[in-house]
Amino acid sequence: MSLSFGSTLKVYLKLTLLFALLGGILVGLGFLIGGISLAFWFLLFALAFNFIMYFISDKIVLLSTGAKIVSEEEAPRLHAIVSKLSAQAGIPKPKVAIVRSPQPNAFATGRNKEHALVAATTGLLNMMNDDEVEAVLAHEIGHVIHRDMLVSTVAASIATAISYIGNLIAWMVILGGLGGRGRDDSARSIAALGAAILAPLAATFVQLAISRSREYYADEASAVLTRRPQSLIRALTKIEQMIYRGAPLNASPSTASLWIANPFKGSSLLELFSTHPSTENRIRRLEEIARKMGYYV
């Protein structure tokens, strides 16, 4: 399975730009606290912390979502669909799990293709036909192929380091460690405090933008893998309707970015603050893909 060269290039360029932006914020803060080397140590610390999380994340996710790994006997339809999709994608078959929840949704986790896990809710399996379940799970397989756990871990590490440095700067200003008593020094302290507040916020926005771009990328993978972008359009529409009609998921809100659609969002939430692009934008992009594939939409 592969996306077109232009499309892949666009995805990588965007990801590079977003990571460069995160790196830029980190370097800028490093200068404020008196050197890049200190910023580097914060980055190392954040990387170590997040990579431990990266290795145990699948277990944490299973616990926080209430997902249970199921055998082929327990969930034959789900296993058959995951087997078919992983064979098409050329990856080892991921573990399969079910979340006992009425809301239709799904997620993928695991640190690489060899340790991947795909989960679906009972609500999704009950409400969707085979084509729609396949489209949703192909999106999740897309996350596995694109190593999105690794991408999000690196993004989270840099954002965490920025947040630590922001806190340090704020405390330095409060305790008088940045600047002296002159007018210039006061101005410098105010600027540093402003940066300490704004930089972590900017880093969070960039981190969310990375998360949203990975969702579009996984949608595209689903369209290419199943050759039926319309199935994902139908599935996303059903999920969206269920979420807006008030079917909150029995899972921890900290897992919001994992699911195919954010199960905790409210209707007024701006896309900028969201882990997922709006369903409307996702459908628009899928329709474009469908037209390129020669389907009338």
Binding site: R100, P102, T122, R245, G246, A247, P248, L249, N250
Partner: peptide, 17 residues
């Protein structure tokens, strides 16, 4: 309250209609 239609755990917000 249909939170428990599939017998899931009840640690998080409930589902109402």
């Amino acid at each position: 309250d249909y939170s428990n239609v599939y017998g899931g755990r009840q640690r998080f917000p409930k589902n109402f209609i």
